[in-house]
């Protein structure tokens, strides 16, 4: 961002820009900050019935959640899902970008095919992938045709196993296998985004630098690791932040594709919040889940916003 010079207009005129942006600022102040404060307050009350009850109960809703089997499962699932989703999306996105960036024919066509799922709703994605990964049909039919024994076919999102399944109090710790089905659907939807970001970055790396290294006898792998990857670091950083915050908030896809799952193997805080608030009328508990989600997102986003804006202003 280039810093704009302040205009030298009479004082009365200098007020106009402020007045023009004021309605938006007031709207954000109320609808974002005011409502967050109100949600925070609700999370400290006893409003867990349809009738509003704003008796102050301190942190008891939070205490309940951290002892709750479902919420503990949600936290485990969020950690597992975030890691799998980010590694797979970024890895696959980078691979696609490297392939597309090789001066190929019909580059635009390939790019468009890899990005088009981004234009779809998570709901559509959920509905379609629920069908493709349905254990009694879909991909399993192909695996069967390829010779997989019927008893050994993956159960996809129906699976209740958690690997390795170390006991961690009430819940089992490990990777819920059912989440892998969700990861496949999200990677299909989001890796085009990672590819587009990386392609923009790859276009910025000078060919001379790569050529010079090749002339010096560096292998393609060395060129990739020593020259290309380091220059893509800032993009990887942005991607990790954008994708993590999407993963922390994820709701629609899981709600449409699998729901909470048996033993909550595919449940996430977004789904729990929605169900407990709007299906169970546990408003205070829902508010507490929402505040925890907000806290996690804030820990990630606030430093990112601060550094981006500081960088931009200088």
């Amino acid at each position: 961002m280039t810093r704009t010079k302040h205009s030298r207009l009479p004082k009365s005129d200098a007020l106009i820009p402020v007045l023009m942006i004021l309605p938006s600022l007031i709207a954000i102040a109320i609808f974002v900050y005011g409502f967050i404060a109100w949600t925070g307050y609700i999370s400290l009350t006893d409003w867990n019935t349809l009738v509003r009850n704003l008796d102050f109960v301190g942190l008891s809703n939070y205490a309940f959640l951290f002892q709750d089997f479902r919420f503990q499962s949600d936290l485990r699932n969020t950690v597992v899902f975030t890691i799998l989703f980010i590694v797979a999306t970024i890895g696959f996105g980078l691979l696609l970008a490297m392939l597309v960036d090789r001066r190929i024919r019909a580059e635009a066509l390939f790019r468009n095919i890899f990005i088009f799922p981004m234009a779809l709703s998570f709901i559509v994605t959920g509905v379609v992938w629920q069908w493709i990964l349905n254990p009694t049909t879909g991909v399993n039919l192909i695996l069967q045709a390829l010779g997989a024994a019927k008893g050994h076919l993956p159960k996809w999102y129906i699976s209740t196993s958690i690997v390795p399944g170390i006991s961690g109090g009430q819940i089992e710790l490990g990777i819920p296998i059912a989440l892998i089905a969700v990861v496949i659907a999200t990677v299909w939807q989001m890796s085009g985004f990672a590819m587009a970001m990386y392609l923009a970055g790859l276009r910025g790396i000078s060919d001379e630098l790569k050529e010079a290294a090749r002339v010096d006898g560096a292998s393609e792998w060395t060129v990739f690791r020593r020259i290309i990857l380091p220059q893509l670091h800032p993009i990887t950083g942005s991607l990790v932040i954008m994708l993590t915050h999407i993963s922390l908030k994820i709701f629609d896809l899981i709600y449409a594709m699998t729901g909470p799952g048996a033993m909550f193997v595919t449940d996430v805080p977004g789904v729990y919040m929605f169900e407990t608030t709007f299906r169970g009328n546990h408003y205070a508990q829902g508010a507490a889940i929402a505040m925890i989600m907000l806290l996690l997102v804030s820990l990630l986003i606030i430093p990112y916003l601060k550094s981006s804006l500081k960088e931009g202003a200088s």
């Binding site: 942006i21 609808f31 109100w38 805080p269 907000l294 804006l309």
Partner: peptide, 24 residues
């Protein structure tokens, strides 16, 4: 202060909307 206000505004696009839903 416009840069700060801009930052405060941008935060609004990252929040999980669950955190404003009940009051909304």
């Amino acid at each position: 202060g416009s840069n700060t206000l801009f930052g405060l505004m941008l935060f609004g696009m990252f929040i999980p909307y669950q955190s404003i839903l009940i009051p909304l």
